[in-house]
Design a protein around this nucleic acid. Structure first.
Length: 427
RNA sequence: GGAGGGGUGGCAGAGCGGUUGAAUGCACCGGUCUUGAAAACCGGCGUACUCGCGAGGGUACCGAGGGUUCGAAUCCCUCCUCCUCCGCCA
């Protein structure tokens, strides 16, 4: 959520910046000005109500004194005066409450302001490739098997059985497939630890406040699995619990940067997906991911974003997978993000680029909703910046590894994973 | 699941219907003293919103949300959470 103060101080600039997301400048302006207007009204009603409250307080203590000195008559007179003030006050309060709700509702509809470097554009086609794969892409020939066929051939992932137990999009990994997953998780966590992240194992379900804190609510409500009976949500990403560790907290500037990593399964309903996009591991309802999160000083967040991008890039290099890095254009940029880099890996049999990581700086957008603040050098309380990235999401990495590393003898295990496994080939 | 007891400032801990934003201690910051430090003494020490050029005001906040009352940290209701005991269970 953008802060109201920022809107008040420069609505034109914000409106202009949001056009990058494909929003209509005039419509946005209209919204911003009505927000400014509402805030003015909010202040007015608040002041009026507070004046009355102050009066009531004073009178009440007078009443107390009068009772003590036995002047009940005079006290009763004052009581009627208080009653009058209170009814007036209540109408101001009601109005104030209404206005506040309107402000909140409007604010929730305004996405984050894109960073200067974000290219304008409508959709994924306008994303900017900031680093392309320079070498030749692997050419497996036309006999290469897509990962779902390889999975069956070597009996390492059973999609049918997963569908039978739960439903489509819940694959069951078995044997060497299951071990490969375990190896990848350990590899990713170890790398994160080396980079200075503290490892946590968070809950996989979160309450409403947490879902709202990182912006899944109200925006992506339909994408989350929800347990009505307990009013809990299954996490769509570890970002939710990891970032919410700091909800409603004021940290010290000395704590920066705060670096947290965690492995969790992620659950997504993926309503509305279809076609070849959802084939095999390309899009599933449950997948594993190691997430990295940083809480940062506002002056440092872009430096840290670069560092996180490098971290992810390094993982892909070590796994020897062809990858490219995209800077998302305004139209493809997530609602809460100011700048996002996507990583895609080339899956050689499908001849497709698969998104495996998304690294974002949210600046103070999440922090504002989370009330995640820090005390700066002058003792002033300010909003922190939050960043996160996948490092990495497993399902599609597995898909690419299987496809790219297939040989007539079997699927070769990348060098870095061998120490995590008791086999070097899947056959 | 049942029964009982708690949640107060950075921490500990009083207050249990009337100038209480909240005693006291510790911690912290500034000062006096000291060659320096400690001790002692003096002073300061929460957050948010808001009015004011400023000095300085106002309002809210004692787990959260409602209610009773002229007045609530204090009474009532709901919820969250922690602890103890019983039951059940991986």
């Amino acid at each position: 959520m953008i802060t109201l103060n920022r809107i008040i101080s420069d609505p034109d600039l914000i409106a202009k910046a949001l056009t990058k997301r494909g929003l209509d400048e005039n419509k946005v302006k209209e919204k911003l000005f009505s927000l400014i207007d509402l805030d003015k009204k909010r202040k007015e009603t608040q002041i009026k109500s507070e004046e009355l409250k102050s009066k009531v307080k004073l009178l009440s203590s007078e009443i107390g004194n009068l009772y003590k000195s036995g002047k009940a008559d005079e006290a009763n007179k004052l009581k009627t005066e208080v009653a009058e003030s209170k009814t007036k006050m209540q109408s101001f309060d009601e109005e104030n409450k209404k206005i506040k709700a309107q402000i909140e509702e409007l604010l929730l509809t305004i996405p984050n302001i894109p960073h200067d470097s974000v290219p304008a554009g409508k959709n994924e086609e306008d994303n900017e490739i900031v680093k392309d794969w320079e070498k030749k892409l692997p050419d497996m020939g036309n006999d290469a098997l897509p990962h779902w066929d390889l999975a069956k051939k070597y009996n390492i992932i059973d999609f049918e059985l997963g569908a039978f137990i739960t439903g489509s999009g819940f694959p069951l990994f078995r044997g060497k497939g299951s071990k490969l997953k375990r190896a990848l998780i350990n590899f990713f966590l170890d790398e994160a630890e080396k980079a200075g992240y503290e490892e946590v194992r968070p809950p996989l379900m979160v309450n409403e406040d947490s879902a709202r804190g990182t912006g899944q609510l109200p925006d992506k409500e339909g994408q989350m699995y929800y347990m009505e009976k307990d009013n809990l949500y299954l996490i769509p990403t570890a970002e939710v619990p990891l970032t919410n560790m700091f909800r409603d907290k004021i940290v010290s500037v000395k704590d920066f940067p705060i670096k947290i990593t965690g492995y969790t399964p992620c659950f997504r309903r993926e309503a509305g997906s279809y076609g070849s996009d959802v084939k095999g591991l390309n899009r599933v309802h449950q997948f594993d991911k190691v997430e990295i999160v940083q809480i940062s000083h506002p002056d440092k967040s872009y430096q840290l974003l670069d560092e996180m991008v490098q971290h992810v890039e390094n993982l892909l290099k070590k796994l020897e997978l062809p990858y490219r890095i995209l800077r998302l254009c305004g139209g493809d940029l997530g609602f809460t993000s100011a700048l996002t880099y996507d990583f895609e890996v080339y899956s050689a049999a499908q001849k497709k680029w698969l998104e495996v990581s998304s690294v974002s700086n949210f600046e103070s957008f999440q922090a504002n909703r989370l009330k995640l603040r820090f005390k700066d050098e002058d003792g002033k309380t300010r909003l922190a910046h939050t960043l996160n990235g996948s490092a990495l999401a497993l399902a599609r990495i597995v898909a690419a590894l299987l496809e790219n590393n297939q040989t007539p003898e079997g699927i070769l295990i990348p060098e870095v994973l061998k120490r995590y496994l008791n086999f070097e080939i899947i056959n």
